[in-house]
């Protein structure tokens, strides 16, 4: 069932908030190096799905298989440790810190281990920050600048660069360009293309149809907490996807799930 190059698979992943069934029996699969978009209306369960596979929340039911092994994440750090990096909708950056500080937040490089008073290795962190920024072709005018002094696009780039710093096996981006201008969006999309060339797996959550068709290999559509379609980009078109999102159409193999 699980082929050797499947990086992440979920089986019957379910999340209930009290009586609200936010996510119901999601079977999802992504291969190494593949870029998959998750689409759906607001409240369709996209963000809930992401919260389960990144350890922010714990699923009510279901299984997560990462790199061939069944995993349960107690917190986002555990997901990160196995190689799932997430760029959250809320950026999760500390405004008063600079770029390397943010990239290494919570996993600082130290020169001398002494519990909480371990001595920071600023030089190594800056070096690795530059390597990561180069890898993603992120352009940030001044590494020493605090996040507070950066534009929305630059902030997003820092958040994305964080995933590249740690050689993640799977990157998840939750609407990375929702708040950005045209140029900044183009910049972020370029970074995503760079990641594709480098063979990084990516789950992209987006409402932007053009962007999705530009960037990904496969589109998975969520509706009312369920997966209702799994479409290869070449075999579909934007109108088709909209039909699935709005409920005008449901994938044949998902008929009973959506009923």
């Amino acid at each position: 069932m699980t082929s050797s190059n499947t990086i992440l698979e979920t089986v019957g992943l379910t999340k209930h908030y009290g009586g609200v069934h936010a996510l119901e029996g999601a079977d999802f699969k992504i291969h190494a190096g593949e870029h998959v978009a998750i689409m759906g209306d607001n409240g369709a369960g996209k963000s809930t799905f992401v919260r389960q596979i990144t350890g922010v929340e714990r699923p009510t039911r279901g299984q997560i298989i990462f790199n061939g092994a069944s995993v349960t994440f107690e917190n986002p750090m555990e997901a990160r440790e196995v190689g799932i990096e997430t760029v959250f909708q809320s950026l999760a950056l500390a405004d008063e810190l600079d770029v390397p500080d943010n990239l290494f937040l919570g996993r600082e490089l130290v020169r001398f281990r002494l519990g909480p008073f371990s001595i920071l290795d600023y030089k190594a962190m800056r070096q690795r920050t530059m390597e990561a920024l180069e890898k993603t072709a992120v352009k940030i005018p001044n590494l020493k600048n605090t996040i507070r002094n950066m534009s929305g696009g630059q902030r997003q780039c820092v958040a994305i660069a964080r995933t590249a710093t740690f050689h993640s096996k799977l990157t998840i981006m939750d609407e990375p360009t929702a708040a950005l201008g045209v140029q900044e969006t183009a910049q972020v999309e370029n970074i995503i293309r760079t990641l594709k060339q480098q063979g990084e797996s990516l789950i992209l959550i987006s409402h932007n149809m053009r962007q999705v068709f530009d960037l990904v290999d496969r589109i998975v559509v969520f509706r009312r907490g369920r997966i209702v379609a799994d479409l290869r980009k070449e075999e579909t078109d934007p109108q088709d996807v909209v039909a699935y999102i709005t409920g005008a159409k449901t994938g044949a193999e998902f008929q009973d799930a959506a009923a």
């Binding site: 986002p76 750090m77 959250f88 999760a92 405004d95 937040l105 919570g106 996993r107």
Partner: peptide, 11 residues
């Protein structure tokens, strides 16, 4: 600076 970010970063 950002308590949520700190928490999400595993602090």
């Amino acid at each position: 600076s950002n308590e949520d970010a700190a928490r999400m970063s595993g602090i």
